[in-house]
Design a protein around this nucleic acid. Structure first.
Lengths: 362, 362
DNA sequence: CGAGTTTACTGGATCGATCCAGAGGAAGGT
DNA sequence: ACCTTCCTCTGGATCGATCCAGTAAACTCG
């Protein structure tokens, strides 16, 4: 009949005639009280339906809530639809779980998290996964003065970043195509800015891309093209509005309808490359006989595709673990040095071969 | 030179010579103080690098931290690899985001969350997505006396559950196959218990399944088989250790190697059904000519498969939203009634047809 | 011009725990 | 018998905010 207050440490302590510190110790420091009393406390707690110290209050006092906030580009379903992202998150989750941290994900319908939510989020640290340079959510997260680690982009002063040498990787992919004899290249890029643009990206748009990784890859590809004396400005670059096979197929369609059709397409992600394969199949273009395709990431579907994709291999899950390791170190109060770029390599599979014009001469 | 304490409301208040309540109001109730003072406070906050009230402390006082904990079966990468789960999470995330909540995911390597983490998790509510009846993490979550909503399973007294009528859905799928003339059926089930078993599931194991949904679907299928006077015990049921195409292909292999090979396989998820398609293709068995396949879920890959899968359509993202709506209601203090089962239907596509023995007579 | 209302701001209580210095008593040593 | 050490247990301070009752001043109005 009495007004039923919530059961807390104090309720229990009063009920048992002990101090609340003792009850707290029963949960957190079993060595600080006799086993008998501890038993009695836990038993009574059970009777009173007390589930243990409130995580929130503990969080405030201890300064740790057990959550790592993750900022991903676009909505959750987009993020989750890319196996590369999923593997990253999995590696990250497994790693931070070792210290009892979970992942907190915010997601608007299609857009990334609102800065307001970022400011109000109860987290111990932030992980940023591939956001553009100027993203407001990143700024908001930085204002919170909590440990932070970035995957790939953006580059932030004083914030460790796990990445590969995207410039070198792109160069290597292009070099592979050039070595095979290809001279009519096409590039299929992920978004260069987050404005939903789908279609041609001229030099200016390339240079002004707010996604650092895209600038780097374009730069690496351009350097390699210049190497053989060709002009980068003549290489058609199509930007996809999102990173999925549908957008990739759309973009590939534009490249394949060019009067001077590319004999090779370098897609900046496997998701897009899968779209290229689909577009080629739909148009009756043989891969690699009439068209070579190179991807990026080495996500599982790339291996399983028909034909299996030649792609840049970057250890996706390992990079997630690496980010997790850095987060854990920062949360322990250690200062994490900027790690060296992660290793990568080009895995040549069946989606690339010599261009049609060379095949007769072999 | 002085010991640099963290900047808090008090620091700011002292610095400006106002009360901390006023500073708090500057952030939370702009109407409670003059615009001029508010400006002054915000400006000074900026100078002192104060990012706004600490979310943790606010969480304690307000009794709300803006996080909904999600319990999923198996590890994150498994969960995320199933498009059905991803769509569910997306719908859920979008819905709870409207009230500013994010999703907190815990994940061990392959296993679901440890009860300890559940007890310590700083969340406002729990969402349980398809766990077995007796899962310790669920028990731990219930002990926390926070709002809770279940998707599909387990059924818990007093906890609203979003689901479809799995018994009726399975019955309908089987009825479809029987109507086509199939008499040699095979069933490919998701895990019946979380013991990693892969292979035949006898009647006893079927009845003792700890996954409610699987019991229901098996029951629905059995009832329909009994309807035509056949014996359920003679229908081969293979259980897959996990819900992915690889396990599905493995299980399908066992069914397809039977002396009396089934002419139709009912898989309890599209993920498994995709595995069946692959196994059939590898074995040179035509679908639907020599083998009919029915899936469950209507996930995007089911539509895109070759041939497109006949499957039970349940609105995946909508169910996520429905769970989110219930969570929001509970968090507002409303009492949410157990919702009616969600609608479903059988979508007949190209993966089912009459059995081989009937085709000649047509 | 005085009563009533509105506006702007304050300080104490509170959310539910953990930390830490220390009290009291039992055990051990000489 | 006295001092020291160890083991249990305690109460006050604290984490960083929000809530709420209340005060003083400014404004409204017949």
């Amino acid at each position: 009949m009495t007004a039923q207050r919530r059961v807390t440490l104090v309720t229990l302590a009063a009920d048992l005639g002990v101090s609340r510190a003792t009850v707290s110790n029963a949960y957190n420091r079993p060595d600080q009280l006799s086993a008998a009393l501890r038993e009695r406390i836990l038993a009574r707690a059970n009777e009173l339906n007390f589930a243990g110290p409130d995580p929130m209050a503990r969080g405030l006092r201890r300064g740790r809530v057990g959550a790592v906030g993750v900022l991903v580009d676009q909505g959750l379903s987009y993020a989750f639809s890319d196996p590369a992202t999923v593997l990253f998150l999995d590696g990250l989750a497994v790693e931070v779980q070792q210290d009892g941290y979970g992942l907190l994900l915010h997601a608007g319908p299609g857009g990334p998290a609102d800065p307001t939510f970022v400011r109000n989020a109860v987290v111990d640290a932030w992980v940023v996964q591939s956001l553009p340079d100027d993203h407001p959510a990143v700024t908001a997260a930085q204002a919170g003065r909590r440990p932070m680690v970035v995957l790939d982009q953006p580059a932030l002063a004083g914030v460790p970043r796990v990445r590969i040498d995207d410039e070198a990787a792109a160069a290597q992919a292009v070099r592979h195509l050039l070595d095979l004899g290809h001279r009519r290249l096409g590039v299929l890029s992920m978004p260069l800015r987050s404005d939903g643009h789908q279609g041609w990206a001229d030099l200016r748009r390339q240079q002004e891309a707010t996604y650092l990784v895209m600038r780097r890859r374009l730069g690496g590809a351009a350097a390699e093209v210049a190497e053989i004396g060709a002009t980068w400005a003549e290489v058609p670059v199509v930007e996809c509005a999102s990173n999925d096979p549908d957008a990739g197929a759309l973009g590939a369609g534009e490249l394949l309808r060019l009067p001077s059709r590319p004999s090779a397409i370098f897609a900046f992600s496997d998701q897009l490359a899968l779209g290229v394969l689909r577009a080629a199949a739909d148009a009756g273009i043989e891969v690699p006989g009439q068209l070579s395709v190179v991807g990026f990431d080495d996500s599982p579907p790339a291996r399983a595709a028909t034909p299996p994709l030649t792609t840049i291999v970057q250890p996706l899950r390992d990079r997630g673990r690496a980010v997790g390791t850095l987060v854990r170190a920062l949360l322990r109060g250690e200062t994490a040095a900027e790690p060296a770029p992660y290793p990568f390599h080009l895995e040549v599979r069946a989606s690339t071969g010599p261009p049609p014009e060379h095949q007769a001469t072999r």
